[in-house]
Design a protein around this nucleic acid. Structure first.
Lengths: 249, 249
DNA sequence: CGCGCGTTTGACATGACTCAAATGCTGTGG
DNA sequence: CCACAGCATTTGAGTCATGTCAAACGCGCG
């Protein structure tokens, strides 16, 4: 059980993407994954104008909470975030993890108030899309609306899969599914599909998957014994993707 | 433990709403709950033109499955539906129940293919909205797009709450939450908030909440012993809403 | 009227949780 | 730069809520 966490060349991560606040959509490396996909140059320039590229958020810092007034949607630019909702009695559920190019705050549109809290998992930055401007722009840009709908729909689809996971899967299946989902999202962004950092705590993972921390820890350890993965602190190496796939249920 | 199911004046239900296929949006009793909300008369008339009002679907009949080509969104007109997704190994998760005025198929927009199966729980009818026409219409009708976004967002928001339920709640809390959610949706539609029919089987309820059938049955029985509810087959009477609220967690 | 499925109830099994404690890692301040 | 404090993670032991298996019951459909 080695130690290590940040300065390992093995694990590249998304915190390094583009902290440069001036990069316009046209030159952004996330273009293929992001909202502007499919917009014409002229439209893209317009969209670019309404985007606020905020300063970066430190680990643990809130992007917004249910207390804040709804004003904007956000797209992750670098780093990663988690969103949570809370029950009346204080229990919390981690509803999602968000990587570069992914939207945060879509569940706020209805009722125009944030329904969840969003928090940075590491030093991260976002593109802020003031919703009023976005609506205004959408009136003359049907393609933008289509993109927005598509984003919402994608998240919806993912949430349904998570329901299946939460409702029907065993601890092993949950964690196998979780690992593969991350693998795919990393590789979609040009990172390794087999070696990556988990920027969230075991507690966050457990919470998100409807498990206890101890269970996550135990299953990870067992996966390692069985040669499926190697654990290096927050770093994970997938050693046998095929077998992991077989465990997903 | 009495018996009864359909012909009881006590329980009014949504199967009786408007089976009349000619009722236009303007005169539809669901207006306040449905898509057209906020559209001007002229726009409404246009929307009305693209809507196909299909024949009714019998209990158990599929509205669509993941095998069907994506073509349309649907709004429940009368009756009720359930949606399901399946894991590779055959396990199924009931992802939602849908009542008059609610959208089905929103998770299909992304990828333009149905991601779930929709099935009638009783004799039911829908308004079919061909997606192409809807997109076409949306180009000149920003308000329609806003409505659509809002619908997606609402479903997203509900799904996040369900994650909290599936991940963090006990069997008692799950069922209390379930009952109150139905109570609200019934009363929103002008039906009694305290007396209603559950059109789905115990199995569907259990599946949706991530429980075993036997657990649902047991908890319902206990709730009845404790004077919280009265069970009459598929009929439910909420006897102490305050106390049920207290159980939601 | 009778068959079959959906529902209820009981007895038992177990996966995952809780509690507890050791160990390791991280970030801070001296 | 190092040492310490505090939190995160791991590991173990025991419990419990909920699932599984089994059987009786009754309603609903043909």
């Amino acid at each position: 059980m080695a130690q290590m966490n940040n300065v390992t060349p093995l694990f590249k991560d998304m915190a390094k993407l583009e902290h440069d606040h001036r990069v316009a959509c046209q030159e952004c490396s996330l273009y293929r994954l992001c909202l502007p996909l499919g917009l014409h140059n002229k439209d893209l320039a317009q969209l670019d104008k309404i985007i606020k590229r905020s300063q970066s958020h430190k680990r643990g810092e809130a992007l917004f909470t249910t207390e804040h007034a709804f004003k904007s949607l956000y797209v992750v630019r670098s780093g990663s975030f988690k969103t949570t909702i809370s029950a009346t009695n204080g229990r919390e559920q981690v509803t999602g993890f968000y990587f570069p190019g992914e939207f945060i705050g879509l569940d706020a549109l209805y009722q125009e108030s944030y329904q969840s809290n969003a928090q940075a998992l590491e030093t991260s930055s976002v593109c802020e899309l003031p919703f009023d401007s976005l609506q205004e722009l959408g009136k003359d840009m049907p393609q933008l609306q289509v993109q927005l709908l598509s984003r919402l729909s994608k998240e919806l689809s993912g949430d349904k899969s998570l329901m299946l996971l939460l409702g029907k899967k065993t601890a092993d299946e949950k964690l196998a599914t979780f690992l593969l989902s991350f693998s795919k999202r990393f590789s979609d962004r040009g990172f390794s599909a087999t070696e990556f950092h988990l920027t969230m705590s075991r507690g966050d993972i457990a919470n998100h998957l409807g498990l206890a921390v101890e269970t996550v820890s135990r299953v990870f350890s067992r996966f390692q014994e069985e040669g499926l993965i190697t654990i290096l602190g927050k770093g994970i190496v997938l050693r046998d993707i095929a077998k992991i796939k077989g465990l997903c249920g």
